[in-house]
Design a protein around this nucleic acid. Structure first.
Length: 594
RNA sequence: GGGGCGGUAGCUCAAUUGGUUAGAGUACCGGCUUGUCACGCCGGUGGUUGCGGGUUCGAUUCCCGUCCGCCUCGCCA
């Protein structure tokens, strides 16, 4: 076999005169007739043009060259020269070409169902791309994504290693965790009737590594949650998972900010600057969401007091609602001097959008030169001055409202705000807005279960100044949790953990876990906390979403080499599939299909 | 579990109110072509209209069921 001396995409005019050998796939071939035949050969690094001079070459070489077809695998040796026909500015190697002297056909290929040209393949349906993933991944775009992902994990390993983190593996076959997402489960052959669970995260193991004195832990690990996927969510995903001992909130956040700063410097030569902070409640009030996108305005204002003075039934009904001890609200967004994209049809459509969040609709109005026009204008007119002042309105502005229970109105406007920004195309390109969200509540009240539920997870510590009210005012108690938000997407989340056994017991009690339950489910953690647990905390980056932002895609499947479909299937391997009945017998499982 | 969109040639799509032999581009095959680079020109092959059933003289088209893919709500501590 001819041995490669250079990668296709790496050839430059500095190589002119050298005899080189490249190996790769035939991307395209252009047979010019009796005299010339061009092929573009592709490898991981890119394309280079190989030219066969049919009149000057031996008959064998010509015959073989003529058989080349798309995606054939070849090795070719020849001299690099400046292109006789002029450079191709679209290719990095476009100034030069290889004049073929020796050609070895390493493998032929059937006509592929899709072509690995980005030009063609970007239009190919995803179903086909996933079935023939090995061809889809040949595309330069997909190669770029895989490479970028690798650069990110390498940077993470380097950065955290330099900062004293040890890479330690935690088990995949673990005990089921009762809280949180649905577990994937695995039958235990040696324990008839018992099951392992696959980890949703290495949470408890990394905490125990801190108790074990490992001090700083890193793992780039798969996590599995058996829940329905979304465009930015897969059941099987990857975290950059960390934990540190003898730290407070600031220490973890500083370490992570340093990671993000270094990564953006490495990848983009971009300085992310100081990362601002926002409390959870400020985020909810101003943006209606705990991961605000601060790249544009459209902030939310509570106009309940003004709305109460109107005769609008929708507002009055909403304000009279009470849920979980919380009164209903009316909130509004000022959409400044809108362009023609905010048509009446679009505005009316927002009510359907709102209904998906269980809100009744989106009342709206517009401020004209002489007062409110259209929509709920007549109800707003009597409180015109107050609304103008509260929302800072100028003529031409549109105001959209949501009136409902606090959580519904907040979430609806939070989601609508992002939709409006997309519809109006006011989301700026090329901006990286990092934000730490802090001071989350410890608990959320579950009206159905009549109990507190942990907002983050039940191992999250209250903030040091909050210990006093943990028992007396759980709903007001703030945690030592922190989320790193990038352009409206949560890319990392973590917290200082509870290292005091009595505090942990108190939290379990508040979320309705009896002592017996807690012992059965988390006995090993409670035990570990008894034997000298250091103060510790950590964080986990969602690697897939991080890569999505960095390569600029909104499809998580693009950043995973072998992703699954929305029904959890792998179209290439056709997993999941049936198993041999013998395997069921061995694992003591009887399958009952409805 | 709910809502929405889609499935026609290898691929991307079209097909009028239910009506002749389901078309186009591309890919592929053959021929021509000495500077192309999404090469070009000429010709050709290629179809279980996702699957099953129904209505009809006649179904890609209408109806029912089902499978698959995508988006989304719930869910994702």
């Amino acid at each position: 076999m001819l041995k490669r001396t250079h990668m296709c995409g790496s050839l430059r005019s500095s190589h002119v005169g050298q005899t080189v050998t490249v190996s790769g796939w035939i991307n395209t071939y252009r047979d010019q007739g009796r005299g010339l035949l061009f092929t573009d050969v592709r490898d991981r690094e890119g394309l280079c043009q190989v030219v066969f001079d049919l009149e000057q070459s031996p008959a064998e070489l010509v015959t073989l060259a003529r058989t080349l077809r798309r995606e054939y695998v070849i090795a070719v040796t020849g001299k690099v020269r400046v292109r006789a026909g002029g450079a191709n500015p679209k290719l990095a190697s476009g100034e030069v070409e290889i004049v073929a002297e020796k050609l070895e056909l390493l493998n032929s290929a059937e006509p592929p169902p899709i072509l690995p040209d980005d030009h063609d393949a970007d239009k190919i349906g995803e179903e086909t791309r996933l079935k023939y993933r090995y061809i889809d991944l040949r595309r330069p775009r997909m190669q770029h994504i895989l490479r970028t992902r690798s650069r990110i994990t390498k940077f993470a390993r380097d950065y955290f290693s330099q900062n004293g983190f040890l890479e330690i593996e935690t088990p995949l076959l673990i005990k089921t965790t009762p809280e949180g997402a649905r577990d994937f489960i695995v039958p235990a052959r040696l324990h008839p009737g018992k099951w392992y669970a696959l980890p949703q995260s290495p949470q408890l193991f990394k905490q125990i590594l801190m108790v074990a004195g490992c001090d700083r832990y890193l793992q780039i690990c798969k996590c599995l949650r058996d829940e329905d996927p979304r465009a930015d969510r897969q059941a099987e995903f990857t975290q950059i998972d960390l934990e540190m001992s003898f730290v407070e909130r600031e220490d973890v956040m500083d370490m992570m900010t340093g990671f993000a700063r270094g990564l953006w410097k490495e990848l983009f030569n971009y300085d992310i600057g100081e990362v601002p902070r926002m409390s959870y409640w400020e985020a909810m009030e101003r943006f209606g969401i705990d991961r605000p996108d601060t790249r544009y305005g459209l902030e939310i204002r509570d106009v309940s007091e003004i709305a109460a003075k109107t005769e609008f039934g929708v507002f009055k009904d909403a304000l009279a609602k009470v849920k979980a001890g919380r009164k209903g609200v009316v909130k509004a967004i000022r959409v400044p001097t809108p362009n023609e994209k905010l048509t009446r049809k679009v505005l009316d459509g927002y009510s359907d959008f709102a209904k998906t969040f269980k809100a009744g609709g989106i009342p709206y109005t517009k401020l004209g030169a002489n007062g409110f026009e259209t929509g709920v204008a007549k109800f707003c007119e009597p409180v015109k001055a107050e609304l103008i002042e509260k929302l800072g309105l100028v003529p031409g502005d549109v105001v959209v409202f949501a009136a409902d229970h606090y959580d519904i109105a907040t979430k609806t406007l939070g989601e609508l705000r992002q939709k409006i920004a997309r519809d109006l195309e006011i989301v700026p390109e090329g901006k990286w807005n990092f934000l730490w969200v802090v001071d989350f509540p410890m608990f959320d009240w579950d009206d159905d279960g009549k109990r507190w539920v942990a907002l983050h997870h039940p191992f999250t510590s209250p903030n040091p100044d909050q210990f006093g009210i943990l028992g007396t005012d759980p709903g007001g108690c703030l945690s030592a949790g922190y989320d790193l938000v990038l352009n409206g997407s949560e890319i990392a989340g973590g917290s200082i953990r509870i290292h005091d056994q009595s505090v942990q017991a108190k939290v379990f009690e508040l979320i309705g876990l009896t002592q017996e339950d807690a012992k059965v489910k988390f006995g090993f953690l409670l035990d570990a906390l008894k034997y000298g647990a250091p103060p510790h905390g950590g964080i986990a980056f969602g690697l897939d979403r991080l890569v999505m932002h960095i390569v600029g895609t909104d499809n998580i499947r693009d950043v995973i080499a072998f992703p699954k479909t929305q029904s959890g299937g792998d179209l290439m391997t056709e997993a999941p599939g049936p198993v041999d009945p013998e395997q069921l017998v061995e694992t003591h499982v009887r399958s009952v299909v409805p």
